[in-house]
């Protein structure tokens, strides 16, 4: 038990709850629907989850450090549009990719500087950049759409490797690297400490601002990664490409048990949250539930997850 706790920290119980939820939804869908248990469908759910996770991973780090990044989705939009434009102009996926990653990382650094140097509240700073990045995307696209990318590039979003969608490998990779960062490096420990109490962290000699800058930068970078995968999957870019992702991404993070107030949560939790969200949406599609019902169900799942966390935490503390 101690070893388990050491590996997963305080989130062990929370994660177990999520596994239970995934199992419950999975069993329910297997019983009540026809197509759920097919390999193709399950892989599709995972592919969907990995797209959400890639964008949510950076934001999860920002939340763990007690910040917020509302600009992730519009950062994705601009990166995707620019990458599409560059690929159209040069025919080179490499240039496209570099453009997306570079642009999104710069936007992330700008967020980080707004929070650390200008000392703007994170919510405000990134809400401002949300509009600015979206505005730049509007300017660049001028209402047009760019579509049709090289087949090699499209593999990133639609391809399979040994029968598993490529984005799922990316999800696994980001999860491993991110968990290494948060669990195996001093930096990760410091990110949690800052999220739990930034004043005490500073007065313990932790370089608070450098760590904050880092998480916003990573959040920008991950928006670029997600932009590429998304672009490759939908094969077309317009200035509205990212907007519908913002709320699902936040939902996945919250369902995954990461706190909006910093210091509590994990990337593993966000993976679970993304899978639960994708399962629920997939299940509703299979059950032919009208799409107008989906937000309602997602909201209910989110509240159940958060309440379950509160209940389990409360019980543990009362026992202790």
């Amino acid at each position: 038990m101690t070893a388990l706790r050491d590996r997963f920290g305080d989130e062990a119980v929370a994660f177990a709850l999520r596994l239970l939820l995934i199992a419950a939804v999975g069993v329910a869908l297997a019983v009540f629907t026809e197509g759920f248990l097919s390999a193709a469908n399950i892989l599709n759910v995972l592919r969907q989850a990995s797209l959400i996770f890639l964008l949510a991973s950076g934001l999860t780090l920002v939340l763990l450090a007690g910040g917020f990044d509302l600009s992730v989705a519009s950062n994705l939009t601009l990166a995707a549009c620019l990458a599409a434009g560059v690929m159209q102009a040069t025919g080179s996926p490499t240039f496209g990719a570099l453009t997306a990653l570079g642009c999104s990382t710069v936007a992330g650094i700008a967020n980080g500087l707004a929070v650390t140097l200008l000392r703007l509240p994170p919510f405000l700073a990134t809400y401002g950049t949300l509009w600015i990045l979206q505005g730049l995307a509007f300017q660049y696209m001028g209402g047009n759409e760019i579509y049709g990318f090289p087949a090699g590039f499209r593999q990133l979003g639609t391809g399979f490797l040994w029968g598993v969608p490529v984005p799922v490998y990316l999800m696994a990779m980001v999860l491993v690297l991110g968990t290494l960062l948060t669990r195996k490096l001093n930096i990760g420990y410091e990110i949690y400490a800052i999220g739990a109490n930034p004043v005490a962290a500073r007065l313990s000699g932790i370089p608070v601002r450098r760590r904050q800058l880092l998480v916003y930068t990573l959040s920008g970078l991950m928006a670029g990664v997600a932009a590429l995968v998304y672009l490759a999957r939908v094969n077309s870019a317009d200035s509205g490409i990212g907007e519908p992702l913002l709320l699902p991404v936040i939902a996945a993070i919250l369902i995954g048990g990461t706190s909006l107030f910093g210091g509590v949560g994990s990337l593993l939790g966000t993976v679970a949250g993304a899978i639960i969200l994708s399962l629920v949406i997939n299940g509703m599609n299979l059950l032919n539930v009208r799409s107008t019902w989906q937000p309602l169900v997602v909201g209910a799942v989110l509240l159940v997850a958060v309440l379950a966390d509160l209940a389990s935490r409360g019980r543990r503390e009362r026992i202790g």
């Binding site: 490096l185 001093n186 930096i187 005490a200 932790i206």
Partner: peptide, 29 residues
């Protein structure tokens, strides 16, 4: 409570908050 501790974190986490650089100079926790 405001400036010295992260109340929601564990005893261990709080005890080590100021000495990571010293215990793990390579950066590996």
């Amino acid at each position: 409570k405001q400036e010295g501790l992260a109340l929601l974190r564990s005893v261990r986490d709080n005890l080590l908050a100021a000495s990571l650089w010293r215990l793990f100079p390579s950066g590996w926790f």
